[in-house]
Design a protein around this nucleic acid. Structure first.
Lengths: 239, 239
DNA sequence: AAAACCATACTACCATACCAGTTATCGGGC
DNA sequence: GCCCGATAACTGGTATGGTAGTATGGTTTT
């Protein structure tokens, strides 16, 4: 591994983002040991900022830090994914509802542009670009309701879900359906219908539940089988 | 300041909790400069764990870290409080709804005990103990719906609101009303009425909005007047 | 041969040292 | 007296060293 950081900015957050990306994209597999020393050497920095990145990864439950033993990428936990989905749905449904009241025309136009760009990425078969635009759609929506602090929280929990998404990338991912869902959310916001916006967002964020059981069965080595699937209600909570 | 830590456990989180508590309880006032070196000396540890605590406090937006300049307790930001309230309401309303489906009788009994204990604390005039029990009530509720990761998130954003609560402590705080609200939430859960539980939770978490404008006007030096009150809808978002 | 033990090589954590950038102070010139 | 510049005293960020604890593998003992 030969990575690089920009010394003009704080190093620790850069290491954190790089490692999170590597974990989410399955470049670093569950069980993999992460050595402070090795990572530091790979990035050409000292161990200290790497350690700070480890701590944040541990809080996001992407790695497990065992004092005096090591730091390891954790297996995908069905209950962690369900918990993340629960929190994300709670926050983003509330955001979608709020957007019906206060989203400006300008913000709606930006969101529409993002959906258009997603369609372009989809027809170009650019999965990575599509996922980046998806992320930007949700972030923009959070900003549109003047709730900037909601996004970092969603971003944190989202990592648990994204790992599953990247796992399902190789097979045909129904990008067109996700685009339709974004469109439905926008349409509901445009006609200021909070119930419809909430329902559309809920449907969108439940998409992951479809492939999850099959993925878990197909990749038992990547999943933590010690945790029973979280109580079904968590995945299906209806408000 | 002469604080103490237990060297048998990781030091950084202890420092973090101690400082957060000090900030939330207004022991450390907005504008106060926090020196890594001074705090380290006060706790009898090195600067390193103090630095890690600062980073977490910065993420919680309780302090502002200015590189090469200093770390300062931030003033209470009305928009930060509104944002925190928005996220907390979103998550806890979802928790309350889920509780209607899956909260065990055992969990409900524990929650009822906590409300009873709160009543005792209230009649004893023990504000601090009351607040601790309030926190435990909400944490127990999150555990009751098998969503343990929801609580740390709520705990994080809650700090912004708690600072306002402690500010309003000197004046008569309507503990009886808060107890009634907890009771209403529990009653709705007991009769498995998610809409009622959600409404009761929403009412409970909107309580802060009543005193907030007056507190901001009465303590202009503690509040950040640069940020306009967040869009009114954020405080009143109805799902 | 099997089991217990110990040396070794890791680990994360904390402490310390060093660095770069900011601020405040103080002295000198106008 | 006021302004401006050099400098000293901070700050947080990074690098490095030291310590205690944990796996591991080879050796010794039973």
């Amino acid at each position: 591994m030969k990575e690089t950081v920009d010394p003009r900015y704080a190093i620790a957050p850069q290491i954190f983002r790089a490692l999170r990306q590597a974990i989410v994209t399955m470049e670093l597999l569950p069980g993999q040991a992460l050595s402070e020393k090795e990572i530091a050497a790979a990035f050409g920095v000292s161990r200290q900022p790497v350690r700070e990145a480890f701590i944040k990864l541990g809080e996001a439950r992407l790695v497990r830090i065992l004092p005096q033993r090591g730091t390891f990428v954790v297996r995908i936990s069905l209950s962690d994914v369900a918990n993340a989905r629960f929190v994300r749905e709670a926050v983003e449904v509330a955001v979608a509802r709020a957007a019906c009241s206060i989203a400006s025309n300008d913000a709606q136009a930006r969101l529409a542009d993002l959906v258009t760009a997603q369609a372009a990425a989809a027809s170009a078969g650019d999965h990575r670009g599509f996922l980046a635009l998806d992320e930007e759609f949700h972030r923009t929506l959070a900003e549109a309701v003047d709730c900037p602090t909601a996004w970092p929280i969603v971003e944190d929990v989202k990592a648990q879900m994204d790992r599953v998404r990247y796992l399902s990338l190789p097979e045909a991912s129904p990008m067109s359906r996700l685009i339709e869902q974004h469109g439905a959310i926008l349409a509901a916001i445009a006609r200021r219908d909070p119930d419809a916006a909430a329902a559309a967002m809920r449907t969108h964020l439940s998409e992951i539940l479809i492939a999850l059981p099959r993925l878990a069965r197909a990749n038992p080595d990547l999943f933590d089988d010690s945790d029973l699937p979280a109580h079904a209600t968590l995945g299906m909570a209806r408000q």
